[in-house]
């Protein structure tokens, strides 16, 4: 899993709420191999017109945002289908963090497990940030995971919360599977108890 400690980067605003995982990566690309190139399908149907040409109105096609590593989204980002490909596509494109007032549950989980940092900030703060980024495209945001803070272009600093275990894993780039495998003795003794009374 990718490590995440701190990051300062251009913030890329996506204003519409309820961006579901179908919009993050359309279903017809789900069978594409996971080889680091899923970024080309990210937001595909928003990014490209039906004739295949980039839609100049879409934020990722606009010059100030080319190098953006932080996505700023509206409420309920990543709702819908559980496809983890949505996280991989964001990461393959280059995103390392998403800031939003709320996330789809499974998407948020999947992000943490892959080292894409989901940052929840109050709706008012995110709304203000989206507005500011419209006024001044290309402004940067700084995220520090150790202190769980975000510094916005206007200089304000906001705290966010991330569950401590996920934070430990992110900071050190270790994943849950390795941790669980170290607990296999506990699982086996549970099974001995469980087997007698259950299925």
């Amino acid at each position: 899993m990718r490590r995440f400690t701190e990051l300062t980067s251009t913030a890329v605003p996506i204003e519409r709420p309820n961006i579901d995982t179908d919009q993050i990566i359309p279903a017809r690309y789900l069978q594409k191999p996971r080889d680091g190139t899923l970024g080309q399908y990210l937001f595909h149907d928003l990014r490209f017109r039906p004739d295949g040409m980039p839609d100049p109105l879409f934020v990722l096609n606009q010059a100030p945002y080319r190098e953006g590593r932080i996505l700023v989204a509206a409420q309920n980002f990543g709702c819908g289908s559980s496809r983890e490909n949505a996280v991989w596509a964001l990461q393959d494109y280059g995103f390392q963090a998403v800031i939003a007032p709320s996330f789809g549950d499974i998407f948020r989980n999947n992000s943490l497990k892959n080292g894409l940092l989901p940052v929840v900030l109050p709706a008012g703060v995110v709304g203000g940030l989206l507005h500011l980024l419209q006024e001044k495209p290309g402004e940067a945001v700084a995220i520090d995971l150790a202190s769980e803070t975000v510094r916005l272009p206007d200089g304000t600093v906001h705290r966010f919360e991330i569950d401590p275990f996920a934070r430990h894993c992110l900071l050190n780039g270790i994943d849950e599977l390795a941790f669980t495998l170290s607990q296999i003795g506990e699982i086996e003794s549970f099974e001995l108890r469980y087997g007698r009374e259950n299925f």
Binding site: R83, N85, E176, L177, I187
Partner: peptide, 20 residues
């Protein structure tokens, strides 16, 4: 529970799932 692909690998390998 509907789970993501990393959790599928975890559940396959351990028969368990972390949940809040």
């Amino acid at each position: 529970f509907g789970i993501g692909m990393t959790e599928v690998a975890h559940a396959l390998a351990t028969r368990t799932l972390w949940q809040a």
